[in-house]
């Protein structure tokens, strides 16, 4: 009886997708910009696809043209010199996680990359995609702002450089125009005595969208005792990742060992007004933000304390 059905897999292929669509995968950035200027809003730019294909799940037929950046080698390079690092927008999270230069100069960018999704996601997802997608929970974004990253935006007509903190306008909203591409991320090499800490809170260890995240980058003066510069940036507690500016006056110019961690934690909590959503309530986020600010300072104290003993 079973045999009457024959091969249960013989019918493949008749489920072919039929809706027409165009696809471009240029080798050069200039070609990509030409295509962009021609198709404008009609074309979808695809990098790693780990956000885009989730958004378009079950409605890929709505995309009438794709611009795939996979063949543009220049977008995959990570270059470093004495003053800065340039990270091509197509660099994957796995690259960020494993790059020796990034580990050395921007340890929390590397850690944030290693906290993203899963091996499968990190192998495909890119830094450029993470930025352009502009999720309030985007894992790389607080660290990028804290390290004073700048983004290079290019179009067929012009190029510009913009600071990370000026780039994000709201959830999924940025200043990027439809004819523009984000080509690279430029980050200055941090000062000698720079310490940093990254904490991401969520419900599990993998494949987790942050409920709250915090990036703290702090540099000391030459004496390695007085704070010269600090940035505390938060994710998932507002419509964009952002810096708590009020922290600066409480920390810059002070002796690190005289800081009141509790007070600073409270200050961070007082400066945020998160929302309730599926990942956490407002109250939970406020309390946790305060705690992770304190934890971040404690972590820095540990490494800084070691350098004091040496």
């Amino acid at each position: 009886m079973e045999a009457s059905f024959g091969d249960l897999k013989k019918g493949q292929k008749n489920c072919q997708r039929t809706v027409p669509c165009q696809y471009f995968a240029p080798q050069k950035i200039e070609e990509a910009l030409e295509i962009l200027s021609k198709y404008g809003k009609e074309i979808k730019i695809i990098a790693g696809g780990t956000d885009l294909l989730v958004q378009y799940y079950d409605r890929l037929y709505e995309v009438s043209a794709w611009l795939d950046l996979k063949n543009i080698e220049e977008l995959k390079e990570i270059k470093i010199d004495q003053n800065q690092i340039e990270i091509g927008a197509m660099s994957t999270h796995t690259q960020l996680e494993s790059s020796a230069d990034i580990k050395r100069y921007y340890p929390i960018l590397s850690q944030a990359a290693s906290d993203i999704g899963s091996p499968q996601i990190r192998n495909r997802g890119t830094i450029g995609g993470n930025i352009v997608n502009a999720s309030p929970a985007g894992d790389l974004l607080p660290a990028l702002i804290a390290y004073r990253a700048q983004f290079k935006l290019v179009s067929h007509k012009e190029e510009s450089i913009v600071s990370a903190e000026d780039f994000f306008l709201g959830p999924k909203k940025t200043i990027l125009k439809f004819e523009q591409l984000l080509s690279k991320i430029i980050i200055p090499i941090p000062e000698q005595n720079t310490y940093s800490s990254w904490i991401k809170i969520g419900k599990r260890k993998a494949l987790m969208v942050a409920t709250v995240s915090l990036a703290l980058v702090l540099s000391m003066a030459e004496d390695n005792k007085i704070i010269q510069e600090v940035k505390v940036c938060l994710g998932s507690v507002a419509s964009t990742p952002f810096e708590i500016m009020e922290i600066r006056e409480k920390m810059i110019g002070r002796q690190f060992k005289q800081l009141d961690f509790n007070e600073l934690g409270q200050l961070v909590e007082d400066r945020i007004s998160p929302i309730d959503d599926i990942r956490g309530t407002k109250g939970y986020r406020q309390e946790v933000t305060k705690n992770i600010m304190i934890n971040a300072l404690e972590k820095i104290q540990e490494t800084w304390g070691q350098s004091q003993n040496d």
Binding site: Y23, A25, I46, G48, G49, T50, L53, V54, Y57, W66, D68, K70, T94, G117, S118, P119, Q120, I121, N123, R124, L207
Partner: peptide
């Protein structure tokens, strides 16, 4: 949506979720 990993394949030596890769990629 890349959450479960059941569609995992090895592509160019790397683990990928085949539901989050376009065939032309």
């Amino acid at each position: 949506k890349g959450e479960c990993g059941a569609c995992t394949v090895i592509m160019n030596g790397e683990l990928v979720a085949s539901c989050l890769v376009l065939a032309p990629q």
